[in-house]
């Protein structure tokens, strides 16, 4: 049984110009201790997917369909108070910008302690002792002295370490990390990812890692899901998605990563840009940009299907009876 299972998840935002479907029929699963990388252009629905799992979509946005199961138990329909015990305790979250994620008026020790006390029922003294240990674990120098310091007294990188400690301190089985290094200085991104990787391995925590950085994905993820216009375009083991993508979009995406080991013949850019939610084309959402598009692509929307490789792709090229070389 997978740790997290998302089935046909659908998230809608009612707007003045009609209902936008930001996440459309998304299904995937994450096993215990596994790292699932999630990639895709900005606006593809990565953050909304993560937010929907922990049910923090801002109204009027809503989960319009599908199921989310944690360790086999549905969490998309449980009472809000029950869901509160899932958040933090079973699923941790790391946000993009550490400068805005921490409450400026609470000391970091207080934020850690209140999180642990909410979920683990610790005494004040135990919570404080553990908070210091967590700060040491995430590499804050002089943790015992700095526990009463406020967020503004830390650098961005240090704050993200604090956020990681906050996400993990109640020992969740899964953490959703939404672009945890995008807002950080390039020079410290690798350290923060290494820290996250080490802690999750030590604690056996599974990770849903949203990132733009293919290097990070290649190094960190076990499997990868590629999102495009609110849907998963391709999903599979990391090596196969990076090196042997089957979906034309993934191929283009991977082609656009400069590689130092294999001198890629040319940086292949995909022409055009991802459609806005208001004008997603009929059929395959990628069809206006696809070099392999054929008739069926403009009429019917493909679901994820088995390919000739280890990945699954939402592309008609792999439907039974379609000619692979169709132009």
């Amino acid at each position: 049984m997978p740790l997290l299972e998302v089935r046909n998840l659908r998230v809608e935002f009612p707007t003045r110009r009609g209902v936008l479907t930001a996440v459309d029929d998304v299904s995937f699963s994450i096993d215990e201790g596994e790292v699932l990388g999630v990639v895709g252009e900005s606006g593809a629905g990565k953050s909304i997917t993560g937010t929907a799992i922990i049910r923090l979509i801002e109204p009027p946005g809503r989960i319009a369909g599908g199921e989310v199961l944690l360790a086999g138990r549905r969490i998309d329909n449980i009472a809000p108070e029950e869901m509160r015990h899932v958040r933090g305790k079973q699923i941790g979250a790391i946000f993009q910008d550490p400068l805005t994620t921490l409450n400026p008026l609470y000391s970091i020790g207080r934020q850690l302690a209140e999180t642990m006390q909410t979920h683990l029922g610790l005494s004040d003294r135990d919570a404080r002792a553990r908070a210091i240990r967590w700060l040491e674990d995430v590499g804050i120098p002089g943790a015992a002295q700095r526990i009463d310091a406020y967020p503004h007294q830390f650098s961005g990188g240090m704050r993200q370490r604090v956020v990681i400690a906050l996400a993990l301190c109640a020992e969740p089985k899964l953490v959703i990390a939404d672009e945890p290094t995008t807002a950080l200085d390039v020079s410290i991104q690798a350290q923060v990812i290494a820290l996250l990787k080490r802690l999750c391995r030590e604690h056996g925590t599974a990770v849903m890692l949203v990132t733009h950085d293919m290097g990070v994905i290649a190094e960190t993820a076990d499997r990868v899901a590629v999102m495009y216009a609110g849907r998963i375009a391709e999903i599979g083991p990391v090596r196969d998605v990076v090196k042997g993508a089957r979906h034309p979009y993934t191929e283009g995406l991977m082609g656009s990563i400069p590689s130092l080991t294999h001198r890629v013949e040319r940086l292949r850019q995909i022409d055009g840009s991802m459609p806005r939610l208001t004008d997603i084309p009929r059929g395959c959402a990628f069809n206006p940009r696809c070099t392999k598009v054929f008739d069926r692509c403009r009429i019917e929307r493909p679901d994820l299907m088995a390919t000739d490789g280890p990945t699954r792709a939402a592309c008609w090229l792999y439907a039974k009876g379609e000619a692979r070389d169709a132009a």
Binding site: L56, R84, V86, R87
Partner: peptide
């Protein structure tokens, strides 16, 4: 949002 995500 983060405070909610921590289950407070």
């Amino acid at each position: 949002k983060f405070a909610r995500a921590r289950g407070l």
